Simulated assay, not measured.
Amino acid sequence: MRKLIVGVMGGGEGASPEVCEMAYKLGGLIAQQGWILLNGGWGVGVMEASARGAKEHNGLTVGILPDRHKDLASPYIDIPIVTGMGDGRNIINVLSSDIVVALPGRSGTISEIALALKNGKKVILLNFPLTDIFVEYQKAGIMVLVHKPEEVIAKIKELYQLENDEKDE
Protein backbone atom coordinates (compact mmCIF):
# COMPACT_ATOMS: atom_id res chain seq x y z
CA MET A 1 0.00 0.00 0.00
CA ARG A 2 1.24 3.47 -0.86
CA LYS A 3 2.39 5.64 2.05
CA LEU A 4 0.17 8.49 3.14
CA ILE A 5 1.46 11.91 2.07
CA VAL A 6 0.75 14.61 4.65
CA GLY A 7 1.06 18.15 3.33
CA VAL A 8 2.18 20.55 6.07
CA MET A 9 1.50 24.18 5.21
CA GLY A 10 2.15 27.29 7.26
CA GLY A 11 4.05 30.51 7.71
CA GLY A 12 7.51 31.04 6.30
CA GLU A 13 9.80 33.81 7.50
CA GLY A 14 7.14 35.31 9.77
CA ALA A 15 6.31 32.09 11.65
CA SER A 16 6.60 32.47 15.42
CA PRO A 17 8.86 30.26 17.53
CA GLU A 18 5.73 28.64 19.03
CA VAL A 19 4.33 27.77 15.59
CA CYS A 20 7.72 26.41 14.51
CA GLU A 21 7.89 24.24 17.63
CA MET A 22 4.45 22.79 16.81
CA ALA A 23 5.58 22.20 13.21
CA TYR A 24 8.73 20.44 14.41
CA LYS A 25 6.74 18.18 16.72
CA LEU A 26 4.17 17.46 14.01
CA GLY A 27 6.93 16.55 11.54
CA GLY A 28 8.34 14.07 14.03
CA LEU A 29 4.94 12.53 14.69
CA ILE A 30 4.26 12.18 10.96
CA ALA A 31 7.61 10.41 10.52
CA GLN A 32 6.90 8.09 13.44
CA GLN A 33 3.73 6.97 11.65
CA GLY A 34 5.76 6.08 8.57
CA TRP A 35 4.01 8.77 6.51
CA ILE A 36 5.67 11.13 4.03
CA LEU A 37 5.88 14.83 4.88
CA LEU A 38 5.39 17.25 1.98
CA ASN A 39 5.82 21.01 2.26
CA GLY A 40 7.02 24.08 0.36
CA GLY A 41 10.64 23.02 0.70
CA TRP A 42 12.34 26.22 1.84
CA GLY A 43 14.58 26.49 4.88
CA VAL A 44 12.36 28.87 6.85
CA GLY A 45 9.44 28.78 9.26
CA VAL A 46 7.00 25.89 9.23
CA MET A 47 8.69 24.36 6.17
CA GLU A 48 12.10 24.09 7.84
CA ALA A 49 10.72 23.09 11.26
CA SER A 50 8.38 20.37 10.02
CA ALA A 51 11.01 18.89 7.69
CA ARG A 52 13.62 18.95 10.47
CA GLY A 53 11.19 17.20 12.82
CA ALA A 54 10.50 14.51 10.24
CA LYS A 55 14.17 13.99 9.33
CA GLU A 56 15.26 13.80 12.97
CA HIS A 57 12.72 10.98 13.36
CA ASN A 58 13.92 9.12 10.24
CA GLY A 59 11.07 10.34 8.03
CA LEU A 60 10.94 11.01 4.31
CA THR A 61 10.43 14.62 3.21
CA VAL A 62 9.39 16.17 -0.10
CA GLY A 63 9.68 19.88 -0.84
CA ILE A 64 7.77 21.54 -3.68
CA LEU A 65 9.94 24.55 -4.44
CA PRO A 66 8.67 27.67 -6.19
CA ASP A 67 12.14 28.21 -7.67
CA ARG A 68 14.17 26.60 -10.44
CA HIS A 69 17.08 25.61 -8.20
CA LYS A 70 17.37 22.60 -5.88
CA ASP A 71 20.06 24.34 -3.86
CA LEU A 72 17.41 26.62 -2.34
CA ALA A 73 15.76 23.65 -0.60
CA SER A 74 16.02 23.09 3.13
CA PRO A 75 18.78 20.64 4.06
CA TYR A 76 16.00 18.54 5.67
CA ILE A 77 14.26 17.93 2.34
CA ASP A 78 15.02 14.53 0.82
CA ILE A 79 13.26 15.06 -2.48
CA PRO A 80 13.30 18.65 -3.75
CA ILE A 81 10.93 19.21 -6.63
CA VAL A 82 11.69 22.40 -8.53
CA THR A 83 8.80 24.01 -10.33
CA GLY A 84 9.80 27.50 -11.42
CA MET A 85 6.13 28.31 -10.76
CA GLY A 86 6.38 30.75 -7.86
CA ASP A 87 3.15 30.75 -5.87
CA GLY A 88 1.56 28.58 -8.57
CA ARG A 89 3.37 25.66 -6.96
CA ASN A 90 0.74 25.74 -4.18
CA ILE A 91 -1.58 23.66 -6.35
CA ILE A 92 1.12 20.98 -6.60
CA ASN A 93 1.54 21.06 -2.80
CA VAL A 94 -2.16 20.45 -2.35
CA LEU A 95 -2.87 17.95 -5.11
CA SER A 96 0.17 15.85 -4.18
CA SER A 97 -0.96 15.61 -0.55
CA ASP A 98 -3.47 13.05 0.65
CA ILE A 99 -4.40 15.36 3.52
CA VAL A 100 -3.39 18.94 4.29
CA VAL A 101 -2.42 20.23 7.74
CA ALA A 102 -2.29 24.03 8.04
CA LEU A 103 -0.47 25.86 10.79
CA PRO A 104 -0.77 29.63 11.19
CA GLY A 105 0.46 31.50 8.16
CA ARG A 106 -0.43 34.30 5.83
CA SER A 107 -1.87 34.50 2.34
CA GLY A 108 0.21 31.62 0.91
CA THR A 109 -1.11 29.27 3.58
CA ILE A 110 -4.64 30.56 3.13
CA SER A 111 -4.36 29.95 -0.62
CA GLU A 112 -3.26 26.36 0.05
CA ILE A 113 -6.21 25.85 2.38
CA ALA A 114 -8.57 27.27 -0.25
CA LEU A 115 -7.06 25.12 -3.03
CA ALA A 116 -7.35 22.03 -0.85
CA LEU A 117 -11.00 22.72 -0.08
CA LYS A 118 -11.76 23.53 -3.72
CA ASN A 119 -10.30 20.15 -4.66
CA GLY A 120 -12.13 18.19 -1.96
CA LYS A 121 -9.03 17.50 0.13
CA LYS A 122 -9.38 17.00 3.86
CA VAL A 123 -7.86 19.91 5.81
CA ILE A 124 -6.78 19.94 9.45
CA LEU A 125 -6.10 23.32 11.04
CA LEU A 126 -3.46 23.08 13.78
CA ASN A 127 -4.05 25.98 16.14
CA PHE A 128 -5.05 28.07 13.12
CA PRO A 129 -8.00 30.35 13.90
CA LEU A 130 -11.11 29.27 12.05
CA THR A 131 -13.05 32.16 10.53
CA ASP A 132 -16.63 32.28 9.32
CA ILE A 133 -15.54 31.84 5.71
CA PHE A 134 -14.52 28.24 6.49
CA VAL A 135 -17.54 27.19 8.57
CA GLU A 136 -19.24 25.65 5.53
CA TYR A 137 -16.26 23.32 5.00
CA GLN A 138 -16.16 22.41 8.68
CA LYS A 139 -19.83 21.40 8.55
CA ALA A 140 -19.12 19.29 5.44
CA GLY A 141 -16.46 17.43 7.40
CA ILE A 142 -13.52 18.30 5.15
CA MET A 143 -11.97 20.85 7.54
CA VAL A 144 -11.26 20.12 11.18
CA LEU A 145 -9.79 22.36 13.89
CA VAL A 146 -7.44 20.83 16.47
CA HIS A 147 -5.05 22.37 19.00
CA LYS A 148 -2.25 19.87 19.55
CA PRO A 149 0.02 17.91 17.20
CA GLU A 150 -1.14 14.63 18.80
CA GLU A 151 -4.72 15.51 17.86
CA VAL A 152 -3.60 15.87 14.23
CA ILE A 153 -2.32 12.31 14.18
CA ALA A 154 -5.50 10.95 15.79
CA LYS A 155 -7.67 12.93 13.35
CA ILE A 156 -5.67 11.74 10.32
CA LYS A 157 -6.12 8.15 11.44
CA GLU A 158 -9.86 8.73 11.94
CA LEU A 159 -10.38 10.52 8.61
CA TYR A 160 -8.19 8.17 6.62
CA GLN A 161 -9.95 5.12 8.05
CA LEU A 162 -13.34 6.64 7.26
CA GLU A 163 -12.19 7.32 3.70
CA ASN A 164 -10.98 3.71 3.31
CA ASP A 165 -14.26 2.38 4.74
CA GLU A 166 -16.22 4.37 2.16
CA LYS A 167 -14.12 2.89 -0.68
CA ASP A 168 -14.80 -0.62 0.65
CA GLU A 169 -18.59 -0.17 0.44
Results as ranks from 00 to 15, higher is better:
R2W: 10
R2C: 07
L4S: 04
L4D: 04
G7L: 09
V8N: 01
M9S: 11
G10E: 02
G12Q: 04
E13H: 12
A15Y: 00
S16E: 00
P17Y: 06
E18L: 07
E21K: 13
K25A: 13
L26S: 06
G27D: 03
G28I: 00
I30G: 03
I30C: 03
I30R: 00
Q32H: 03
Q32R: 11
L38C: 13
G40N: 06
G41M: 04
W42A: 10
V46K: 02
V46D: 02
M47K: 05
M47G: 06
A54Q: 02
A54V: 06
K55W: 01
K55G: 02
H57L: 04
N58W: 03
N58Q: 11
G59S: 03
G59W: 00
V62A: 11
I64D: 03
L65Q: 07
P66V: 10
R68G: 09
H69I: 10
K70P: 04
K70S: 12
S74W: 07
S74M: 04
Y76V: 07
I77F: 10
I77C: 07
D78P: 06
I79F: 15
I81K: 15
V82T: 15
V82G: 11
G84S: 14
G86H: 14
G86K: 13
D87S: 13
D87P: 14
G88Q: 10
R89D: 11
N90E: 08
N90Q: 08
I92L: 14
V94N: 06
L95I: 15
L95D: 06
L95S: 13
S96H: 15
S96Y: 13
S97P: 06
D98Q: 08
V100G: 05
V100M: 11
A102S: 12
L103N: 03
P104Q: 01
G105C: 10
G105Y: 03
S107F: 13
G108Q: 06
G108M: 12
I110P: 03
E112W: 04
A114Q: 05
A114L: 13
L115E: 09
A116E: 01
A116N: 04
L117E: 03
N119H: 14
G120Y: 10
G120A: 08
V123C: 05
N127L: 02
P129V: 06
T131Y: 13
T131K: 06
D132V: 13
D132M: 10
I133V: 15
F134G: 02
E136C: 11
Y137E: 09
A140S: 11
I142Q: 07
M143P: 02
V144L: 05
V146Q: 02
H147A: 05
P149S: 06
V152G: 07
V152R: 02
E158A: 13
L159Y: 03
L159N: 04
Y160P: 00
Q161I: 03
N164D: 12
N164E: 13
E166P: 05
K167L: 13
D168S: 14
E169H: 09
E169L: 11
